[in-house]
Design a protein around this nucleic acid. Structure first.
Length: 578
RNA sequence: GCCCCGAUAGCUCAGGGGAUAGAGCGUCCGCCUCCUAAGCGGAAGGUCGCAGGUUCGAAUCCUGCUCGGGGCACCA
């Protein structure tokens, strides 16, 4: 079954064609959710905009559309109001039948999109460095986007573009050799290792020289050096995996493919740019000048692809990675989830890929920028001493704070269960706070707000789910039968509002895949949970008569699945009790 | 200097051509013999940064400005 908004839109396109000629099938009927219940459930606003081109009065246009509209099985009322709004009220019967169809559908009415291979580049921490809050947003937003696209049926490859190459590895490997060659220490103290190496490098010119030679050895593929490099990379991956696991990041969507994977392609990138006629030399460096960019001096802004000392940069690696994703993996869409400060870099990168002919007109390249996490002082989130906040410590605190709340609200819960719930609630709250506001904006990190049980938070949504599950536990305990559930009868206003909200899921998921804005899904789930809570207050389920009970249990069940699925798409788990 | 992003209730944020702009927190007032009150209802609170413009209609689109953040050659 086509989802509700698409169905309504299609009806209006038919009506427009019938009333004003076939060419008007292409006119957007401007079907929107009504802002006020007095204006019905949906409204079509096309009459006002069409009146001018048709040279008719808007209300007459509206009347013609309504006369041509096939409304029989769908709308209770179709009313023309104000300057020419067409207000639509769905029949309770249509709502009930659509909720039943949604309930029967494993995908909750979300139809698969035409399958595309899509690469999503996110997380991207640096080898031999600890992850910090700066990595949280890319990791959570990227994971959510990858999950949504997969749910829509796409072939999604998440790639972790690790910072696993570069001059700093000379220093790290040299220091590793000095300190015995083994990373036996299980990398909770990667930062310490990095900083010790840096201190050695800064404080001892003789060591610094050895580090520089070590870079050369690494680049020419010296076996012993490479092995130590691999030791560092592997140890770091083990550490990243522990963080990803604690954050409930879907590792089946995220493969490690660091910068080093493209080392052998970099010469060829330069050659390709040359063949495309884009390569220029400037002050000893090799650069390209993508169209439309100016520097401080008003002159064309170069993107440097090879340094004066013949070294390569992230632009080169990014070009190589993009070529790999397009040519080898066959992606038709590549999505980069990085902070907003890199916007210009990606704009230049995309422009270069277009000009080189490496990304054709049918390839979508998206930069998904996001703002900074701010502390309570509205400055970038740091510890009191001004250091970066370690991601592991943030997760610890999220779980501790959630544990304290769970223990207070539900003291009789077994200890192990409390720990599990604290994890799900704490990490869910942390991730949800990151996803819930428009991602381009900076957001203020606030433990109390994100863990609040009121408002647009993960715990509020998780609790709505828990309350539903609680009803089913009681039903099972009391031996109340509900197999097959029965028809969904919409009677009460709260049932109606809940049904309407449920049926919006497909349009919301599609919108997220298009805009790459997970906060839209958050808003939807919050509205759904609110609608459910109102239903819960006003509509007793188990104490109702059998027919009503079966109907309401079915509403409960489809709501629970929608909440659970929606939260899963955000990378957030649910629990049965909390 | 140029470019990008932001500005909506006291605070934190939704809404991004459509009717009288919403939520949570905070403040005030109500609601548990009843499926989790981790909930619900109500009240109070807004020149949607400023000024123009486009439009039947602008918080939403355009231009300029103010304020804040970010970027602008060998780091990523």
């Amino acid at each position: 079954m086509t989802d509700l908004s698409s169905t309504i839109e299609a009806r209006f396109r038919d009506a427009l064609a019938k009333a004003f000629g076939d060419e008007h099938r292409a006119t957007d009927p401007l079907v929107r959710l009504s802002t006020d219940e007095r204006f019905g459930d949906y409204q079509a606003n096309v009459a006002m905009s069409l009146a001018k081109t048709l040279g008719a009065k808007p209300r007459d246009v509206a009347a013609s559309i309504v006369a041509a509209l096939d409304a029989a099985d769908l709308f209770e009322r179709v009313e023309i109001a104000g300057p020419g709004f067409i207000n639509l009220t769905l029949t309770n019967d249509a709502l009930g039948r659509r909720v039943e169809a949604m309930h029967e559908d494993e995908r909750l009415g979300v139809e698969p999109a035409p399958r595309e291979r899509i690469v999503v580049d996110y997380s991207g921490p640096n080898v031999a460095k600890e992850m910090h809050v700066g990595h949280l947003r890319s990791t959570c937003i990227g994971d959510a986007i990858a999950r949504v696209l997969r749910f829509l049926g796409h072939d999604v490859i998440g790639q972790n573009h690790l910072g696993d190459w570069g001059t700093q590895f000379g220093m790290l490997i040299e220091y590793l050799m000095e300190s015995g060659g083994a990373v036996s220490r299980e990398i909770g103290d990667l930062n310490a290792f990095y900083q010790e190496a840096k201190r050695r490098f800064d404080g001892d010119p003789e060591f610094a020289e050895r580090a520089r030679l070590r870079v050369v050895a690494l680049q020419r593929g010296d076996a012993e050096t490479l092995e130590l490099w691999r030791t560092l990379v592997d140890a770091s991956k083990r550490y990243f995996d522990t963080i990803y696991e604690r954050l409930d990041i879907d590792r089946s969507l995220l493969e490690y493919r660091g910068e080093s994977a493209y080392n052998d392609d970099l010469d060829d990138v330069i050659r390709g740019l040359d063949e495309a006629g884009l390569l220029r030399e400037s002050e000893g460096a090799l650069v390209v000048y993508p169209q439309g960019f100016k520097g401080r001096d008003g002159e064309p802004l170069p993107m440097i692809v090879r340094k004066r000392d013949a070294g390569y940069l992230y632009a080169t690696t990014d070009l190589a990675a993009a070529r790999y994703r397009l040519n080898v993996l066959g992606a038709t869409r590549v999505i980069y989830v990085t902070d907003a400060r890199q916007s210009q870099h990606f704009a230049m990168l995309f422009q270069t890929l277009r000009e080189a002919g490496w990304a054709g007109p049918n390839i979508r390249l998206d930069h998904v920028p996001f703002g900074t996490i701010l502390g309570p002082d509205r400055k970038p989130f740091k510890t009191r001493s001004g250091d970066v906040v370690r991601l592991g410590e943030v997760i610890d605190e999220a779980e501790e704070r959630a544990y304290a709340i769970v223990a207070e609200k539900n003291p009789s819960m077994p200890e192990e269960e409390k720990r599990r719930v604290a994890h799900v609630v704490g990490v869910g709250a942390l991730k949800y706070a990151d996803l819930a506001s428009e991602r381009i904006r900076d957001y203020v990190f606030d433990w109390n707000r994100m863990l609040s049980l009121d408002g647009n938070t993960a715990p509020y949504l998780q609790n709505a789910y828990v309350r539903i599950r609680s009803i089913f536990r009681k039903a099972d305990a009391d031996g109340i039968a509900y197999e097959g559930f029965g028809r969904v009868k919409i009677v009460e206003e709260a049932e109606r509002a809940l049904a309407l909200k449920l049926l919006q899921l497909p349009a919301v998921v599609r919108g997220v895949a298009e805009s790459l804005e997970p906060h839209r899904l958050c808003n939807y789930l919050y509205e759904l949970a609110s609608a459910y809570h109102r239903f819960y207050e006003r509509c007793p389920v188990l104490s109702a008569d059998d027919e009503t009970r079966r109907s309401r249990l079915r509403l409960c069940d489809v709501t629970a699945r929608t909440l659970k699925t929606g939260l899963e798409l955000l990378g957030i788990a649910t629990v049965e009790q909390m």
